[in-house]
């Protein structure tokens, strides 16, 4: 008993140290005065100031945000529609092909997705003149395509777990199918839609390989800028950027977890209250 729990605790400690020490070091050295990233030269926030003066970086960040918001939104709509198809429509023509196409992007190596989409855009450009040149639009389309596969997974599992009879009850009470979907199903899918959107947003913001393929000279995303500067050697500016990204992710996750925790607590409290009322004390 004792040795077992000691082993498990140390496994956890090792695992989390492995996951977090590099991130912590990044954060610590983002406040380093010295340009040498690995030698401590005193506390300073000058790299943050430098980061905010870096025009190229800021511009790329804006491009990335634009792409991420647009593609996450389209991917959420398309992914939800696909999930509806998969769960609710039973057999339809071409279901097998569709299943293949919606799940394949999950396991497709990024280099292949990127290459194939680039070749598509080039061919289309020469054949119909669209998309003329490559930039934000092509990146958005590429990101939407692989993000919708992730949204589909998230929404599909939620949809499969939904109690169908609630929707049926709404229809029994007179709501037409479309209305029942809008009033009953969609709100119940809410959490899945939010997490699907956030997941897409993150994946899009994070993608380097696919964007490198499909981005023309017109648009550069943040990971592309980071990648090229990292290749040239490490700079404290990247540490400052990393710290900001980690901060944003942590705050978002903590808020989401907090909201979920509060809802769960409230639900539990309501249930105990109801039980107590039922028992009559």
């Amino acid at each position: 008993m004792g040795t077992r729990s000691v082993f498990l605790v140390s496994a956890l400690a090792f695992g989390f140290a492995f996951l977090y020490v590099p991130i912590l070091l990044l954060i610590i050295f983002s406040f380093n005065e010295s340009r040498l990233v690995t030698v401590w030269g005193g506390f300073s926030t000058k790299w943050y100031a430098e980061l905010f003066r870096n025009e190229q970086m800021l511009e790329a960040a804006l491009v990335s945000l634009r792409v991420a918001v647009t593609s996450a939104t389209i991917a959420t709509v398309l992914g939800t529609l696909s999930a509806l198809m998969m769960v609710r429509f039973g057999r339809f023509r071409g279901r097998l092909l569709f299943t293949g196409m919606i799940t394949a992007p999950l396991v497709m190596p990024e280099v292949i997705t990127g290459l194939s989409l680039l070749l598509l855009f080039v061919s289309l450009d020469t054949m119909i003149g669209w998309p003329a040149g490559r930039g934000v639009d092509t990146i958005t389309i590429a990101h939407t395509t692989f993000c919708m596969a992730y949204v589909n997974v998230v929404v599909q599992s939620r949809l499969a777990g939904l109690d169908r009879s609630v929707e049926e009850a709404a229809m029994d009470l007179g709501a037409r199918p479309f209305k029942a979907f809008m009033v009953i199903t969609l709100p119940m899918l809410g959490p899945a839609l939010v997490s699907g959107w956030l997941l897409s947003f993150t994946l899009s913001l994070d993608d380097l390989v696919i964007a490198s393929f499909v981005a023309g000279p017109a648009a550069t995303t943040l990971p592309m800028v980071v990648f090229s500067s990292v290749r040239l050697g490490i700079t404290p500016e990247i540490n400052a950027l990393a710290t900001l990204l980690v901060l944003v992710a942590t705050v978002t996750i903590l808020i989401a977890a907090g909201v979920m925790w509060r809802q769960e607590r409230e639900r539990e409290r309501a249930v105990t209250k109801a039980l107590r009322a039922e028992r009559g004390d």
């Binding site: 989390f16 996951l19 977090y20 590099p22 991130i23 070091l25 990044l26 050295f29 040498l36 990233v37 690995t38 030698v39 993150t202 913001l205 994070d206 380097l208 990971p223 980071v226 990648f227 990292v230 490490i234 990247i238 950027l241 990393a242 990204l245 980690v246 992710a249 942590t250 978002t252 996750i253 977890a257």
Partner: peptide, 25 residues
């Protein structure tokens, strides 16, 4: 939460972190 959290931070930057740890200096 702790397992999922790194996933939400940039993949590229997490790889970059190891350069600073492993390089010669």
């Amino acid at each position: 939460l702790l397992v999922i959290l790194p996933f939400w931070t940039s993949f590229l930057i997490r790889v970059y972190a190891w350069i600073g740890i492993l390089k010669n200096n």
